[in-house]
Design a protein around this nucleic acid. Structure first.
Lengths: 202, 202
DNA sequence: ACGTCGCCATGACAGATGTCACGTGCTGCC
DNA sequence: GGCAGCACGTGACATCTGTCATGGCGACGT
């Protein structure tokens, strides 16, 4: 009995390459490939794969919310996150969303098929290095507003621009930013954005 | 006669997957895989591949300077850049460094083997979309110092920190930054960094 | 009912930032 | 030689940013 797979990655070349890699295994079969988060759920419902391999960074819906969608609508399909960035927050949020495994793209190629088989067998697969980091970094200390404001600050917007975008007062934006800067241990808006991104808090 | 390939990509999973993808083609053979820019040249000298597929973003030496190294030390090995980001400056600099082709990672997987064959045949392979962008964005308008200062500003450093790092006066750093901000059409240090990065000027 | 917490806002302040004018010295080019 | 461009610096200025104190409002848990 072969394990049926769905691949979701926004980079077509990587998607095709992973398909070729997994297709070499006799017990694995790629039944669907999609390039955006919005296509994941329809494809899962159409093909009923055993395991869905999802990237986190994708256009449309990101892999984590796509995971939650899949778990709710098709509980028989297990989800394995395959992503570039080993951000601690990603791992935690992915597992909370119901993912069965989390693999970073710089793990050896030979291990991927094994990870798929373990996930299919009902086991959890988590990069041990990452798991400890995730515990250290923990959950985001930022409040909802602080997160919003930091997100809006990512592109280098000024306080005034952020305030207009979020319908807030300039002073309020500065307060939220200041608070976020303090919580991230930064001295600076830009630094705060960087460390928050690095921890997967945005 | 098979075409002998070298793969360089920092993500082991992608590397292995590309290897599997290209290995499916009867006329292609992957003879070496490396995960950093510093390993490229030794591997080329050791295995004499016909075509080297290099990523731009790699630890150690980046793919573009690695291209230059390879062209100088092993002119028979042609270089095909395979990268995530279609930054206009990357393309221009890659071609200047002697690359024969430039492929973005979201091109269809089926085209990669063709690109390899064309490069091997002595043709140039360039994403047409990207080529026009490259002409529009053109060469970096930033001077050497402005580039250095912007690079130092990437991590959110303050003016004082940048000045210390580059052994400059605070005022000079501010001047260079101001000039870079003007040239990039930004209103802001952070914006300047973003647009400069997007154009591959850093 | 009370305290706590998040959210919003205001006002004030110091420090950082971006701009401008101006001057120096060096280099390359016509 | 004269000119343009770049690097480097100074000083001054307006603005932006980050911090702090303070207050009101609503939600939540005890």
């Amino acid at each position: 009995m072969t394990i049926r797979l769905l691949l979701a990655d926004d980079q077509a070349l990587v998607r095709g390459a992973l398909s070729a890699l997994l297709g070499l295994e006799p017990d694995l079969e790629v039944v669907a490939e999609v390039g955006s988060g919005t296509e994941v759920l329809p494809a899962v419902l159409a093909h009923h794969p055993d395991v869905a391999l999802l990237d986190v960074e994708m256009p449309g819906i990101d892999g984590i919310t796509a995971t939650a969608e899949v778990r709710r609508a098709a509980p028989d399909t297990r989800v394995l996150i395959v992503t570039t960035f080993g951000r601690p927050g990603y791992l935690r949020r992915a597992l909370q969303a119901g993912a069965s495994g989390f693999v970073v793209k710089d793990t050896p190629a030979a291990q991927l098929a094994d990870a798929v088989r373990r996930v299919h067998a009902g086991l959890r697969v988590v990069d041990p290095m990452l798991a400890t980091d995730s515990l250290v970094a923990g959950e985001s200390p930022l409040t909802a507003r602080e997160t919003e404001v930091l997100q809006a600050a990512r592109d280098g917007s000024s306080v005034a621009a952020i305030a207009r975008k979020l319908f807030l007062s300039d002073g309020t934006v500065r307060n939220h930013l200041s608070s976020a800067i303090g919580k991230t241990g930064a001295t600076n808006r830009a630094e705060a954005v960087i460390t928050a991104e690095g921890n997967g808090w945005l």
